[in-house]
């Protein structure tokens, strides 16, 4: 079982007060509670402030390209389904640059957990609008304010019958730890959209703004009720619910491939001499 010290990574280069710190804290706590040592989990990240995340803890890490976390994570799960795989992405990263991959990860229902650090802004590139920026938000390149409606990732995921749809809040790490554990334990694709204040560039969606709005879904809330889930997913205004909004038990893709039903691909031996005996038969 790992201790907090085992999960100590490099010193974060985030701005003091950044919501990412709350996410990091929640993640480490989830690792401790799930008893996952650094070599027993793989984190794939993209590029952005969130992309640096795995460097600030300890885990198998593939810090790949902006927007491309999910194809990498998908293949990792197919090759070694015994290893928990988490993708960490930004809102620009995975709702913008890599949107197509999100659609298909949900469709495949690959057993990967996607944690989106949703700060409703492009942090690393210094403050441009993101797909989740609210209408009217002023940025350097939107002098008249953002003119498009934001993407609601919860409604989007639900419409595709994503097998685990949750919203978390970086300011409530204790709750977020629980969500992360549930997502990792869930068999199938799990999306947690984590509301993450960016204290430097997003002066609209601040801790104060969230504090007035965010509330935990109660114990009586049934995440298997899809109609109710749609209502909760759409709720993003004066009140913003956090928790598991929707869950189903569609079989994950990696459970539906006979080739890897008993043994992970990475543990299957390659016997060149055996293959050589038959491989040319097709051509005579």
């Amino acid at each position: 079982m790992p201790t907090l010290a085992d999960l100590e990574g490099r010193i974060p280069a985030w701005c003091p007060g950044c919501g990412n710190f709350g996410i990091l804290r929640a993640f480490k706590q989830a690792m401790i509670e799930l008893k996952l040592s650094p070599h027993e989990i793989t984190v794939v990240s993209g590029i952005g402030q969130s992309g640096k995340f795995p460097h600030y803890t300890k885990c198998n890490t593939f810090n790949g390209l902006h927007g491309r976390t999910l194809p990498v994570a998908t293949a990792m799960k197919l090759v070694n389904h015994a290893m928990p795989v988490v993708a960490e992405a930004g809102d620009g990263d995975c709702y913008g640059e890599g949107g197509n991959h999100l659609l298909h990860a949900i469709r495949r229902n690959i057993d990967v957990s996607l944690f989106v650090h949703d700060n409703q802004i492009y942090g690393l590139t210094k403050g441009q609008a993101s797909p989740t920026s609210m209408e009217g938000m002023m940025t350097k390149i939107n002098p008249h304010g953002v003119v498009c409606e934001p993407l609601n990732p919860m409604v989007f995921a639900l419409a595709l019958d994503c097998s685990f749809v949750a919203r978390g809040y970086a300011g409530d790490s204790e709750h977020l730890t629980r969500l992360m554990k549930a997502a990792i334990n869930h068999k199938g694709f799990a999306l947690i959209d984590i509301l993450q204040p960016c204290v430097t560039f997003n002066l609209v969606n601040t801790y104060g703004w969230f504090k007035q709005r965010v509330y935990r879904l109660g114990d009586d809330y049934d995440p298997e009720d899809k109609e109710q889930a749609l209502q909760k997913a759409a709720e993003f205004g004066d009140r913003i619910p956090i928790g598991i909004i929707y869950r189903n038990n569609r079989a994950p893709m990696n459970d539906r491939i006979p080739l890897i039903a008993s043994t992970p691909l990475v543990k299957q031996p390659f016997e060149p001499l055996e293959v050589a005996q038959t491989i040319l038969n097709d051509f005579f």
């Binding site: 790949g64 491309r68 194809p71 990498v72 990792m76 197919l78 090759v79 197509n100 890897i260 293959v275």
Partner: peptide, 28 residues
């Protein structure tokens, strides 16, 4: 089936090469 090769039709070529890299990192 015969030789134990996992074949995936990717959603696009960007995914295809990223999948190939993820698979290799994972050990095959």
């Amino acid at each position: 089936d015969q030789y134990g090769i996992l074949v995936e039709q990717a959603e696009d070529e960007i995914a295809a090469i990223n999948m190939a890299l993820g698979a290799c990192f994972a050990g095959v």
